[in-house]
Design a binder for these strands. Structure first.
Lengths: 351, 351
DNA sequence: TTTCGCACTTGAATCGATCCAGAGGCTGGT
DNA sequence: ACCAGCCTCTGGATCGATTCAAGTGCGAAA
């Protein structure tokens, strides 16, 4: 015999299917006599309780939201410290709402399995997806509510962003205040085309990634106001890996006047840079000051500890999820970023 | 007008619903003429593609597996470094199978929302749930396949465990080989009753948590073989927090002969202990050697770097998920644990 | 006694697909 | 000319629940 269904239970208990359903979902509507009869029948048939799939179809609720990330593999998501914090924030909101949480990695071209198109969910949180991305289109098509994090403003979509511009300004202003006149910038990608190297004006104009563009703008503004000149050679686009950062540093330090301060758009890049600088016999912060971005946990526990711009990652996640879950009104939010001064920055030495 | 359904598309395209379904799921079975007609109709009606809920109900597949954790809040799961690695492993297997991944936090008594009973999933991975736990019962009731991690052997359930006994033996043997004769043990909980303090024989006999029991057994065996005596005062049950570890250290160091080596069942505990010992004016490893368990990332990057027992957390997750997803035969697996000697252990000083 | 309202129950419609047995047409071999 | 075999396509059953308008019975009020 197959599994028992609600229909079988109702028949055995001599009640209608509707009543049996109520016993499991709104028992207060059913007299205790019938309630007991239904429970007895359920036990006798080894009924496992209402099947979630049937329930989801009829009621239209899945009790699950999905974080959509533009990354090839699910495994990567769980290896990333930024994602950990974002997930913790989203998870906190899910805890409040009693919702489940899943992750969709969306870059891989597959159309089967677990994708925006096939996931059984009540809504999506898109992370760091540009407004012209295919993912926005897919999310729209799906017809479910969604919010975007770190995508900049997008027409008709609730968003959560961080004041990248202000944070970057603060970082650069700090460096300027310490007297630095030769400043290098380690930039994140400006577009998803895998290019690295010096960022000239043309490249800057094409910058597609909002986060990168805003931070770059913040750095340049503060430096410009202090009349610090910024040669293209000193603005290098890299990934969060050792190889590209090494190349970038070579371009900055092996020719021309070397910078006395480095503004990095991520702590990962900053920490790699610190290590590489030491490898070059340069002391941080004595010879070179370094400022990161994000404030990952390691930033506080390394030596020298890292001066960085703290962004409220967890709060971003929680806020986005709360909007999606209807726990607070949906809208456009920009959360503050704050400079945290630690041990990796110091006054410029006069030469 | 509401959303278009497959039925509407089929009607407009003048084909049967079955054919329309095939167009979306097995297009190779349909002639290109009809295929085109169906696509056209779909476009005209703004059909969003087969609805996942209906599909899941009929086909019985959700393309989603769930990690079930005995923790109150989802947010905690994503704040835990052990979980990060476990999730990365499970995620890797999901990537291979094209399956999605979700997390169910199961302690909270709620019956609605996203629970073992209500989640739309194809199977579960239970983490660190004792074989007599309510969660095993719920998972069984649900009638879906599941595997267990870190639960010890369980009748009729595929399991993945680590050789805790062997790992603990190796840790203790290392300490013994260094000449230590007074050894303290910082134990994880033996049962979920919130008790801490010295572990006597009665408490040991009641130990419900497989992991703790096996590690304790390994420590005791290796120490016993070397004729190192183990007073109950030197075996202290603690949580992974500063307060209980401090109490435990006080019990060990404030009266009687203090130990010259500490075996800790987690790196978290070990790192806290190192800090507290330094606070007591004791040097590690000169005065006291410390061995951890797990090999968390920080273990390698602290000073002194931590000697510990490395367990393949990621592999555990991947293996469990692969079994669940049918990527490899299900069975009982025990993965090896390996001693990693670093800077927190040294030869005992003769007094 | 009639009427009204309240508290339960019923039964059928519905959610949106997939699956499958079988029908029809076409091809090629004998 | 016949039949086997293949490729397409059809139509209806089915997955397992929730929802809701309508119906029942019973006690209290008029």
């Amino acid at each position: 015999m197959g599994r028992a269904r609600l229909k079988d239970v109702a028949r055995l208990a001599n009640v209608s299917q509707g009543t049996a359903s109520n016993v499991f979902n709104r028992p207060e509507l059913v007299s205790s006599a019938l309630r007991q009869a239904v429970f007895d029948a359920a036990r006798a048939l080894e009924y496992r309780g209402p099947a979630p799939a049937g329930r989801a179809l009829r009621s239209g609720k899945a009790h699950l939201i999905a974080l959509v990330v533009e990354v090839d593999l699910l495994a990567y998501v769980f290896e990333d410290s930024f994602m950990h914090r974002l997930l913790a924030g989203i998870g906190a909101a899910c805890d409040e709402a009693g919702s489940g949480l899943t992750v969709i990695s969306a870059t891989s071209g597959r159309r089967d399995g677990w994708t925006i198109e096939t996931a059984i969910a009540d809504g999506f949180i898109l992370h760091c997806v540009e407004h012209d991305s295919r993912l926005f289109e897919l999310a729209r098509r799906r017809g479910l509510p969604f919010v975007a994090i770190d995508s900049g403003p997008v027409e008709g979509v609730p968003t959560v962003d961080v004041d990248d511009h202000g944070g970057a300004r603060a970082a650069a202003a700090h460096i300027v205040a310490l007297g630095h006149r030769h400043v290098g910038i380690l930039s994140l990608e400006t577009a998803g085309d895998g290019r690295t190297g010096a960022i000239d004006d043309a490249r800057l104009a094409d910058a597609r990634y909002t986060v990168t563009r805003d931070r770059l703008r913040g750095y340049r503004e503060a430096l410009g106001e202090a009349r610090v000149e910024l040669e293209p050679r000193l603005v290098q686009e890299t990934f969060n890996d050792r190889a590209t950062v090494a190349t970038a540093l070579a371009a900055m330090f092996d020719a021309g006047t070397p910078p006395t301060a480095l503004l990095a758009m991520s702590d990962t890049m900053a920490l790699i840079a610190v290590e590489l600088l030491m490898g070059r016999g340069l002391r941080v912060p004595t010879d070179v000051s370094v400022v990161g971005f994000d404030d990952v946990p390691e930033a506080a526990n390394c030596s020298p500890s890292l001066t960085t711009v703290k962004q409220p990652v967890r709060a971003k996640g929680r806020h986005a999820a709360r909007m999606l879950l209807g726990l607070e009104p949906a809208g456009v939010t920009v959360l503050p970023a704050r400079l945290v001064v630690r041990g990796s920055t110091a006054a410029a030495t006069t030469r």
